[in-house]
Design a protein around this nucleic acid. Structure first.
Length: 455
RNA sequence: GUGGGCGUAGCUCAGCUGGUAGAGCAUCGCGUUGUGGUCGCGAGGGUCGCGGGUUCAAGUCCCGUCGCUCACCCCA
């Protein structure tokens, strides 16, 4: 009954050379977030069940905590693992409202858990990286622009990943447009429009008529709005205006969306684009203004890999309301499929840039001394595990992707060999330094496949 | 939760209408006795997911079960 353990579906684990990729993604995100003054927090893994279930009928996706010796009538402890970082954050804000400075900005990079059936990019245990800004009673719109700028900057710095396309819309714009058309089933219409990336337009038109009860002319105008897509801030007002609908909320939404595109224009580039996409709505729940989705170039079937938006009531204690705006980047969702599909990984499986060769166990102190000298100058290195033949020691380095092997010569001098080109030179343990490029593992960047290309 | 596909060596897989288990890559050794990669030769490695059934005989057929996987549902 011994046998090899098998992987647990939905609980991905990485090899060392893959974990390096994940850590570099997380390090880059954190570094960028902190450049903008977002401090980090970590919340506990569990929340009371009533907190987790406030947002709807998702109880079946929550992992419950239960003692083996559970005796309560419910059969569980009344606690569950959090399924995102927003709900725990909202609770944290309320709990610590008296001690926090508002507007409060934080980043949070943690695991989350969902009991759903795993698929590519969708796991039961996964890592997310969130930024949010929360105000007390009010939160000016410029913060919507700010979080977008932070995330665009962060994505831009993930140079070893494919490009990103951030799609932005605004709930006020949609709701104002629907109100201007006299639609009174706005939520239902929005939910159907949100399916445009899965169902053909004709099908959605049918559903709008049959399920949302709008007439065909109205359905066509709803779809015309949803077809609007532009990266040009000045185009938004013109394209929406051409549809001839008038409503104060619509005007407000157009203005916000325009300001947002304007506000990030200087940061966008080839790898990270931002565009207005008026079909984006996000799940119905609590977004009230700006909404975001993000596609990974060449991996559109993964769906949105970085989402978020504005919620006028992220949290409320009954007396005070805390509006927020934020974005959530799906770390696992992006990197695990890339590793599976393209072999994305670091060029070595260990941090070491040098393997110090070993001539014999009696000379291990001499090799250790070399390693100590290198480490004192922040050069990661390791000493060979055994005094095997030098050919084997070199092979050990090669298999781990370590680029340099260090030899202590019989006369006590030193040489270091770059095993990639075979070049071997005299070196001083107190002075030799690898190139900055070699010092840390490098991620082999991935080119997007050209086949995939859809919504 | 529903439906399909697949479980054979470390990995990728072959194995026909049942007849005692294979390849490539990887690993280890030797050629080359302290400077790798190429090349050549050789070796090790398997309760064929698990349980039951049919049969003289099951990796192969049947039933069950577990796992993985894809799609649907869902996606706060």
């Amino acid at each position: 009954m011994a046998g090899k353990p098998t992987p647990l579906s939905g609980f991905p684990e990485l090899l060392p050379e893959q974990r390096i990729v994940e850590q570099q993604v997380v390090d880059t995100l954190r570094h960028t977030f902190e450049l903008y003054g977002f401090g980090g927090i970590e919340t506990r893994a569990v929340e009371p069940l009533d907190q987790l279930l406030r947002k709807g009928d998702t109880s079946k996706e929550v992992y419950l905590l239960r003692r083996l010796h559970e005796e309560s009538a419910e059969g569980h402890a009344g606690m569950g693992l959090h399924f995102d970082l927003t709900v725990p954050f909202a609770r944290y804000v309320l709990e610590n409202a008296g001690k926090l400075e508002f507007p409060f900005r934080r980043h949070q990079i943690q695991k989350a858990w969902r009991g759903e059936r795993p698929q590519e990019g969708r796991f039961r245990e996964f890592t997310q990286a969130d930024i949010d800004i929360v105000g007390r009673d009010a939160l000016p719109f410029h913060h919507d622009v700010e979080v977008t700028r932070v995330m665009v900057d962060a994505l831009t710095r993930l140079t070893f990943l494919p490009g990103f396309r951030l799609q932005v819309n605004n709930r006020k714009l949609i709701q104002g447009f629907y109100a201007g058309l006299g639609i009174d089933t706005g939520d239902e219409v929005m939910r159907l429009v949100d399916k445009l990336d899965k169902l053909p337009v004709e099908k959605v038109r049918e559903l709008l008529v049959s399920e949302a009860g709008v007439d065909e002319a109205t359905a066509d105008r709803v779809l015309s709005l949803a077809e609007i897509r532009t990266a040009d801030a000045t185009e938004v007002a013109r394209l929406v205006g051409d549809l001839g609908v008038d409503h104060p909320l619509l005007a407000e939404g157009v203005d916000e969306l325009t300001r947002l595109l304007d506000g990030v224009a200087d940061l966008v580039g080839d790898r990270v684009r931002v565009e207005a996409d008026l079909s984006i709505a996000r799940g119905l729940d609590y977004y009230t203004g700006t909404v975001f989705e993000t596609r990974l170039a060449g991996y559109e079937s993964l769906g949105s890999i970085c989402s978020g938006g504005r919620y006028d009531s992220l949290a409320s204690d009954g007396r005070t309301t805390y509006p927020g705006v934020g974005l959530s980047f799906g770390v696992s969702r992006v990197i695990v499929p890339l590793m599976a599909r393209t072999g994305l990984a670091a060029d070595r499986s260990v941090p070491s840039v040098v393997l110090v060769a070993l001539t014999g166990e009696d000379s291990r102190p001499a090799s250790d001394a070399v390693a100590t000298a290198l480490r004192s100058r922040d050069i990661p290195c390791e000493v060979a595990p055994s005094a095997a033949k030098f050919g084997k020691q070199i092979r050990t380095a090669e298999r781990r992707g370590i680029p340099f092997v260090w030899f202590v010569q019989p006369d006590g001098t030193h040489q270091v060999k770059d095993i990639r080109d075979g070049n071997q030179v005299d070196a001083d343990p107190a002075a030799w330094t690898p190139s900055a490029h070699d010092l840390r593992p490098t991620i082999v960047s991935t080119e997007p496949p050209t086949e995939e290309q859809h919504p």
